[in-house]
Amino acid sequence: MKHTSTLAAWRGRLAGQIPLISLIALCILTALLTPRFLSPLNLTNILVQSSIMAVIAIGMTFVIVGGGFDLSVGSTAALAGCVASMVMLQTGITAGVVAGIMAGGAVGLVNGLVIAFLDVNPFITTLGTMVLVRGVVFLITGGAPVSGEYGLPGAFVAFGSERFLGIHLLVWVPALLLAILSFVMYATPYGRRVYATGGGREAAYLSGIPVRRVIASTYVWCGALAGLAGVMLAARLQSGQPTAGEFYELTAIAAVVLGGASLHGGEGSLYKSVIGVFIMIVLGNALNLLNVDSYWQRVAVGIVIVAAAAAERLRSRS
């Protein structure tokens, strides 16, 4: 009896770490296939690429755990990058960064209010704002990159390439966010309410949880973090790019699901979503290093997403 119980406990624990195990397996496999994978340059590259997507995926996890969905994050990131660049050129770096994040938060607030208080389907709402926000970006920029006559302020551009303790500043951002927001999700009543609302809206409502406000708040987080990601991207690209962030929403959602979150809500963790981001980025990187044709890359990534989701369902069914 004792024996089976420890065995079962171990199996449960392992099953919870499937994303991490897959990531490690993927890294080992790639390293065996091509030595270039482990070169410092490549590893740094992966970290930096992952950092921006991780910030978006963290916000997306809030929404998905709360039982929702957000397609507008890519457009929101572009909006934030352009707004930040424009304000920065006028008034200064801090004001620019704040304006970018607030622009993202504002898009999130609109999404949240429409979805939570008007009961409009999240898929269709954020599909709408995705298109709408992209339109606004083109309107305010005239379709051209925002970098001013002499480029964005040097200190801001430096943020996209400087390091602290040997690690890119861009990478510190999601690392800090992960630590702080994981604490918010696990240890604060607010975080527990997000899980309860996503897991059983009616039960949460009948337990006195203000479910509409909770749901709306998850979209604000998601929008603001997409805004922050857009600002980071602007620093990296040294300009506000109106076309930036296309398809980011798909990668972010795939990463969150790869990390084991349920699209039905109530399940998911920020840390595992970040693992999911790494899986997506490492996979793309590996296929690149192996010189896989870019059309085939898409096919491969698609297969991985569907297979991972199917494996997850099979596991939870047994």
Binding site: P189, A196, G200, A203, A204, S207, G208, G266
Partner: peptide, 23 residues
């Protein structure tokens, strides 16, 4: 099913209405 969040633990369900009290 209307009173319980089925995927959450017994503990979390018991505390569902008292989060502020244990904060």
């Amino acid at each position: 099913a209307l009173g319980l969040v089925l995927n959450q633990s017994v503990r979390d369900n018991i505390l569902l209405a008292s989060l502020d009290q244990v904060t």
